[in-house]
Structure formats: C-alpha cells, structure tokens
Design a protein around this nucleic acid. Structure first.
Lengths: 214, 214
DNA sequence: GCCTCCATGTAACACGTTACATGATTCG
DNA sequence: CGAATCATGTAACGTGTTACATGGAGGC
C-alpha cells in the first residue's frame, strides 16, 4: 500500500493536480516509486472518498478541467502513521539477472549487447542524479533535518546506479574475455551433480539449507 | 512477462513439480524473481496449454497428486528467444526510501528502528549469498561458461546487498548524529523556496529540466 | 473547421497477494 | 480414526499496464 502514501507525500509537499502529480512522478518521486497517470487518478479518487484529500474549491468540477488537491488533517495523520510502520523489504526483481540465468541453460547471443545497452541507461541515470545532487545539495551548505533526509534518499539512488554500472561493467568484461556468449556449447538438460537420481533438493545451485542457518 | 520464463528456466534446469518449483523459488531463483505457489500453478496451467511444457507421464492426473513438468522444444525455443529480447530496466521501487521522503515532510519517530531492522535483514541475506558463493564457486576452480554466468548473477545479488548494508549504515549514522528523527521541529506545509506563489514547476527538489539534459 | 496539446477520466486485462478448499500420505 | 504434512488447486481482491474516450483551449 505505498502508492497512496506516495501521493499524500507529494501533495503535502505541494498541492497539485492529477497531471501535475504525473509529471512529478516522472521526476523526483518516481525515481523510487513510479506511477502512471491512470494509477494516480484512480488513487486520487479513493483518497478523496476516504477523506484524506480534497479538491481545492477554486477548481470547476468538470471533465477536462484542472483540479488541484490538498491534503486534509486525516490524510496527514495517515501518512505519519505509515511512516512509523514496520514493513519488510520486498525481494529484488531483475529481469536482466533472470535472463542471464536463462542464458546459462539455453545460451543466448544478444545478451552482451543488452548488457551494454543497460550500462548506458544506468550511466545516464547516474549522471542525472549527480547533477541533481550538485544543484540541490552543495557540500558547504549546512542543511536542515528534512534536507538531509532528502539527500540521503538521493544518495540511495546514486549508489544503486553506481552498483549497476559497476556490475554491468564487470559482467561485460568477463563475457568479453571468454569470447562472447552462446558459443559455450550445449548446456544440456542437467550437467550438474545430483541430477536425476535424488528426488530431493540437490542439483540446482546447491543452495543454502545445511550448516548453521541464521 | 518474466514469470513464465523464470519457470521455463527452472524446468529446463530440472523437471519439477509445482511445489518443488515453489521451494526453488524460495531459494536460488527467487533471489531475483520471487513467486508464490498460486502464481506458479496458474502459470504452469498456461504454459501447458501453450504447449511449452507437459506433465511427465509417470504422474497420475488427480488432485493432491504430485505432477512433474518438463519443457518441450517449443518452450525451450520460446525461452531462447526471450533471452535475446531487448527490455528496459524497470525503475527501482523502494517503500523504505519513500517513507524516508515522507518522513522529511511529516516527521517520524520509528524510522530509525526500521532502518536498523532492515540493516539486519540485508546483512543476513548478504551472509547467505556469501556462503553460497563459497560453497559453489571456489576461487581456484576453472569453471565453464554456464557456471561463470551463474556466478555473475550471484555476485549481482551480493553487491546489491552490500549496497543496502552500506547505505543503511550511512543513514543510521547520519540520523544518529542529529539525535534521532522527528525531533527536527515541525516541517510545516512548505518551508522550501518557491512555495505557493509560483503555480509552475519549482518547489519540489528542484529537479532536472533546465540545463543540458542528455 | 481541423489539429494539437492539456487534462481528466474509463475499460480491460495482466500480474501479485491473501485466504481458503480439497485430496493424498504418513504417523500415532 | 484423527492430526499433521504434502500437494494441488479456487476465489477474491488489489495493484500495475495498455489502450482508448471525452472535453476544453489555442493556433492555423
């Protein structure tokens, strides 16, 4: 249940219309929680019905007419409660890593180009973040608590992109060494140890489970 | 459309039943593409109907009866085609970063504990990955292409966890310095520059848009 | 009048999550 | 037999994605 809270946060920062929110989600907020305009309108409706936000009275309630929303006290309370909530991190999801694992069993010739393409994209994103950091968080300026939180969030994005750039660079170098990809011979159904005889656990990537599990 | 391909990959590696897949998704595969047993059964049905997989004839087709699947040539072809597909990385999604941004506007007392809790979880995950690496990828062993791919995937997981551990440590230290969180005074509606006067863009985090966008 | 852009929406579908239902097997 | 466990599924709902619909305002 994060999208409504993302919207509430954005609206507390500044009352905005649906399309305005969409644009803000394409920039700073969407850097760690993306949303399309359809999701946003749908959610704005729910939030209004719940009494968390209301349309500013200045707007005419007609289709195609701009409508700005502001957060009501109940919405602010809800948001504050959510911040203090315990919520486990969701496991990572990367289609690229998945495709790499698939390439390990069926081969794949185009993966290398794809890695380089992703490297470019992440490098661009990293540059964008660094520009924002340089503009909004100059090193000398003694900043308020709220600004330091925002800076921490941005640094999270920066370091995440650095991780991708680093990993992709490594991966490309390592695949280059071996002379490409997909020329590694037929992987076969299962060349690993513990293949078909044991009906139990072994045979995958020999995963954890035995000694001293925390 | 990644889940069906994740399942195909798992089945190519080794024919498995629905519950077996579920367990494998809780371990190695799920480390970068998680799925519940309901999703898996639903998808197995679709894959079978599409002619990508079939139940091994040994199994009795009855409810509550174990049913193992294997990949058919069409499924293998589909998987190979997907590996060579171009697909943009999905933007990151982190509820924790979102909550931090929310905390910047409404305050929040429990966030610090939450950061420490997450730090513990990520540290544990990192240790688990490192154990797997030590067991499956000893440094001296000259490995085949497929193994090197799998190692790269695992290292992706390792470095991602290291990123989180590092960032969370930083964040906790920085919040500690200031003496907690939520004691930073009332953030108010908008203490930032460019608050209510300008109806346009400014006022958020001064995001990109002006000079030299790439 | 027509086209484009801004803005708000609807509809349909795919994917993910949670809760529950049903049958087989094993252990006591 | 009853309870626990393994295994396969259904149902309902919430969220995310894609395509399209509606309407106003400005330019030509």
């Amino acid at each position: 249940m994060s999208l409504p809270h993302a919207i509430l946060t954005a609206l507390v920062e500044k009352p905005t219309s649906g399309l305005g929110l969409t644009r803000r989600f394409d920039r700073s907020i969407g850097y760690f929680w993306s949303a399309t305009h359809q999701q946003i309108y749908r959610e704005l409706g729910k939030l209004e019905q719940a009494g968390y936000i209301r349309a500013l009275p200045s707007a005419v309630p007609a289709r195609g007419q701009k409508k700005e929303y502001e957060v009501l006290p109940a919405g602010r309370a809800e948001l504050a409660a959510w911040v203090d909530t315990a919520e486990d991190p969701k496991p990572m999801r990367s289609a690229l890593l998945l495709r790499m694992r698939a390439a390990a069993v069926v081969g794949g010739t185009g993966l290398r180009d794809e890695l380089e393409r992703h490297l470019g994209l992440h490098q661009r994103q990293l540059d964008e973040y660094l520009e924002i950091e340089a503009r909004d968080f100059p090193p000398d300026r003694r900043s308020a608590e709220a600004d330091r939180l925002r800076h921490l969030v941005l640094r999270g994005g920066i370091e995440l992109e650095r991780f991708w750039v680093h990993w992709l660079t490594q991966a490309i170098a390592e695949l280059g060494e071996a002379g490409g990809l997909g020329e590694a011979g037929e992987p076969g159904e299962a060349g690993e140890p513990g293949e078909a005889g044991e009906p139990g656990e072994a045979g995958e990537l020999r995963e954890a489970g035995g000694p001293g599990d925390g």
